[in-house]
Write a protein that binds this DNA or RNA. Structure first.
Lengths: 277, 277
DNA sequence: TAAGTTATTAACAATATGTTAAAAAGAGGT
DNA sequence: ACCTCTTTTTAACATATTGTTAATAACTTA
């Protein structure tokens, strides 16, 4: 091996292809809440989580659904910049909550060649979205966790239903971390079923000790609406007084009211950023 | 663009170099606890966190310290397998706690070319380690967090002291996530100062809601020793009765005692894996 | 005006955590 | 043998947080 006497001298000679190379992509789990309102006069609308999927137009996995994503250009952009670019394209939004989730890298996750993918979670308020996105569609999420660590996820966009089943296997030396094994997945490209499960669990965990939920809420909301969002993410009913105490210092009451719902009107609240929790 | 009629046909034709490629590495923050015992007869030993660093033998960053790591071979291994390989080389241990931390990818983080690095945290019990590792050394960690989100980290291996200063900048749309800006770092290669801070914060956060601490403990330990480890990771004093209640259902008392410490002997405890917490 | 529905909060119960203080017991020194 | 030092261990109480029940409020529609 040639001897160098300085960092500069070494770099002048360096051949970037010295190590084997690979391609990278980003995949983004874009999450929002939707309200499926029933048609009766009392609008007991039911909040659901919904995620954005795109239809693949090319091989591989042609005509399957997948998470919005794209290849990283190693010359010019970081993974996060690439993710923001994809988000801008798919939602026309910028300045939204974006968090690196996990880097998925099973050797055969892409049938073409070795492609490592760093996934992100983005949280958006659906009200701010532009109307239609080419080849993309929002799917409501139903999440069924069985006792034996088997999870069924059902996605529905009104026309089409996608089902997948994943088994969670406890990792060695841990009590709280899992490997995901796909049991059944016929409609989603790549390993995006695992990305979805991973992202949904991340959101669920973070709900209790962060303020992320407000990234999915409009500026003004009732406490009932906020509670419904908590309930759909945590997948369980909460009791009103307990819930209100817990979020009390995260929101502030405004003068506005929401009326016309067929029952006592409620105050509209707003997110209040706190110094220290 | 050529038209294909099946996935197989497409793949037969696929050129892996179609997209720009890059190299990937893994970096591992190997964390343990050490006991610096003072020489007085009452062995009021002080626990510290310690991390493993390696001295770089080649360019770039020749002769600087860095985290153990290595290039990924995209043909044959996953990131985690690569991390396990590095761990085996540096500590001769396998079957240890290993968790993917974050994928660092600043465009200029490696002066040679674009190298994206996925970092891992490994937790080990130092007692299980082989004696000496070539070119590697354990550094005790001192962590000083200033009020204004500036963190000083001091690393010491007995011969050498490494100091670094990092500023934490709150990320947009969040109340709990930070970008790290290096203020001062003269001795650590690449962006490993950020990896270290990121990993230490991850451990600190997970301490309260997981059982990770026991990966750094020997099989038998006193509650005083366990409490010291909590204190050094959380960087604050805990009150005995409160601490004991909190960890009560994670440990089980054994018949063994630890004596000869110059004070009342203490029972030795053992980690007890729990059904449900 | 009555019925139905959700909003809001008071009041109490149960649990969890913070704090003080006291008793226990080995090592070392005299 | 006894005293001192030290840490271990636990009891007892104080405080804070969260769970639960139930009562009242206020709108919409019939």
């Amino acid at each position: 091996m040639k001897e160098y006497s300085s960092e500069e001298e070494f770099l002048k000679d360096y051949n970037p292809k010295e190590f084997e190379q690979l391609s990278m992509t980003v995949d983004i789990l874009v999450v929002s809440v939707s309200s499926k309102d029933s048609s009766n006069y009392r609008k007991t609308d039911k909040k659901m989580m919904s995620i954005l999927l795109a239809k693949r137009e090319d091989y591989p996995f042609k005509d399957k659904w997948c998470l919005p994503g794209g290849f990283l250009d190693p010359k010019t952009e970081t993974l996060e910049e690439c993710a923001k670019k994809v988000l801008k394209r798919e939602t026309n939004l910028s300045n939204i909550y974006l968090e690196q989730l996990y880097t998925f890298d099973a050797i055969d996750r892409d049938p073409r060649t070795r492609v490592v993918s760093t996934s992100f979670v983005a949280l958006v308020d659906k009200n701010k979205l532009k109307q239609h996105v080419e080849n993309a569609s929002w799917f409501d999420v139903t999440f069924i966790e069985e006792k034996n660590n088997v999870v069924d996820i059902v996605l529905d966009n009104g026309n089409e239903t996608i089902k997948m089943t994943i088994k969670k296997v406890l990792r060695e030396k841990t009590t709280d971390r899992y490997d995901y094994k796909t049991v059944k997945n016929d409609s989603l490209a790549f390993d995006h079923d695992k990305v979805i499960l991973s992202g949904l669990e991340r959101i669920k965990n973070k709900l209790n000790y962060t303020d992320i939920v407000f990234n999915m809420m409009p500026e003004y909301f009732t406490l009932g609406e906020l509670q419904q969002v908590y309930e759909v993410i945590l997948n369980k009913k909460l009791l009103d007084p307990a819930f209100r105490r817990i979020i009390a210092n995260k929101v502030e009451k405004t003068e506005k009211m929401k009326t016309g719902e067929g029952h006592r009107p409620s105050y509209l609240f707003r997110y209040k950023k706190n110094e220290r929790d």
